[in-house]
Design a protein around this nucleic acid. Structure first.
Lengths: 121, 121
DNA sequence: AACTTATGCATAAGTTATTTGGGTATTATC
DNA sequence: GATAATACCCAAATAACTTATGCATAAGTT
């Protein structure tokens, strides 16, 4: 039956796992820190994971654009030290949506732990 | 600068997060249970996660085929109650590869928790 | 001065893992 | 006899990435 219904390389140590979680990581960092720009999100993720989770620029910027298009975050450009920074923050009216999204990924992560490590070693 | 470097439908509550983790979940379940068939993996995942992580058949079977092609698992067909079951088990010589894969996803999951929930609430 | 590294944004082609929607077949339940 | 459950499979379309670019400024090095 069926349906019922020279360059630098920014390599990702956890490449294949990151898929699908990137946007929620962005939202969580923005929620925690209030206001961040793309490059900063990459750096902070790298630091917080001791270099084990590395976001690529080719992934982060399109992801930010998509989140903004969806209305979950809002951007504002700023000149800092002669360079342009595009800061993002969570749209206040969407805060609850964002929180639910983060909570859902935490639940998923919990299930993952249970599936991978059933005896909780 | 730059990079250096009438059928049923099995819907997934955690759709977007599952991406990239499916194959490792399969390996973990096989490691834990020794020998399983595709449908069984779907059911067990559903039970272990209280219906919150639901694998689709369209995803699980191609994933199993891919893992077998890679040599990480091996299959054997059996007739049970007039129906064909295709059992899979981890290739003994690849057990260490599988374990490292599982360990890597557990590390990633740990980083995820830290990123999403920095204060460990 | 010239070069490299770091900071910062962006886009596009190609790859890959999914979803979505089919298809087939047997057994059990109503 | 219809529906639900068990069991496998495939293919088109989509989505999320990687990889590879491009542009621009500032700071540090040689």
């Amino acid at each position: 039956m069926h349906k019922l219904f020279g360059y630098y390389y920014i390599m990702n140590t956890n490449k294949e796992f990151l898929s699908g979680t990137l946007r929620t990581i962005i939202l969580a960092l923005l929620k925690e820190n209030g206001r961040m720009y793309g490059y900063e999100i990459c750096q902070m993720t790298k630091e917080l994971t001791k270099g084990e989770v590395l976001l690529t620029e080719g992934a982060i910027y399109p992801a930010l654009h998509k989140l903004e298009k969806k209305g979950l975050i809002q951007s504002s450009k700023e000149q800092v030290n002669g360079r342009t920074r595009k800061y993002y923050a969570i749209t206040t009216t969407e805060a609850s949506v964002v929180e639910e999204q983060i909570a859902a990924l935490l639940r998923f992560s919990s299930h993952l732990n249970h599936l991978l490590n059933p005896r909780g070693l």
